[in-house]
Design a binder for these strands. Structure first.
Lengths: 111, 111
DNA sequence: ATATATACATAAATTTCTTATGTATGTAAA
DNA sequence: TTTACATACATAAGAAATTTATGTATATAT
């Protein structure tokens, strides 16, 4: 992204949304998924991702399950019930915010 | 707004866009305009606005002109040439970012 | 050997915003 | 007449979300 400032505030919602679609995911997988879905447009950094996951877990929105795959550690995260509810809320907030932005930046349709 | 975190990063672009449509505006006017356009959804706080305006001025994107109206001080801001160019850039970045977000949060259209 | 990918983590610094506070003028209400 | 609200600017302290840098460790490819 050219202006990565725009990114601020939406990371949590993106994580939750992905988890609502994938049952369980681990951190590295999330970074790769976002990169793939956005064709490289959005690259989540580890310094942003891991603290976010820890926070979501601390808030009770995510549960963790540690696994060892190919002799490597993985931490699988999945939505709790509370997390599922919050995902719905945060998604509608984000959609509302996008709609608000549109009214500001889009060329007026009323001439 | 419920989640004002979403707001982060887009204030500068909003200010520039408004100024690209209004030739010159003063700070308080910007807050009222945004409030009206978004039907109260987005309320720019003074603590965010004024430092932003000062920064944009310091970066050479805005020019200032002080005026006294009804015995009250007003600082009119207008886009410089550089500011006009930057407005175009920032707007396309914001639009691109919204499009990127859409691909992440929108229900897949491919079933 | 060296680089790259996978997989986690954290700490310092930066940016952006909220909240609180301050100054000053004008008007409306109680 | 004083209280509240609107207009109009400003800044400082604190909070929150990032970036950037760094670290550990395993596996694979060059």
């Amino acid at each position: 992204m050219a202006n990565s400032n725009l990114y601020k505030g939406s990371l949590t919602t993106i994580i939750l949304k992905l988890l609502s679609e994938h049952d369980k995911m681990y951190g590295y997988e999330i970074t790769q998924k976002v990169k793939a879905l956005t064709k490289g447009e959005l690259q989540i950094t580890e310094g942003a991702l891991y603290p976010s996951l820890h926070k979501l877990e601390a808030e009770g929105l995510l549960d963790v399950e540690v696994a060892k795959v190919d002799n490597r550690l993985r931490k699988y995260y999945k939505l709790t019930e509370k997390g599922t509810t919050e995902t719905v809320n945060k998604l509608s907030e984000l959609e509302q915010y996008i709609a608000t932005l549109q009214t500001l930046i889009n060329p007026k349709l009323s001439y």
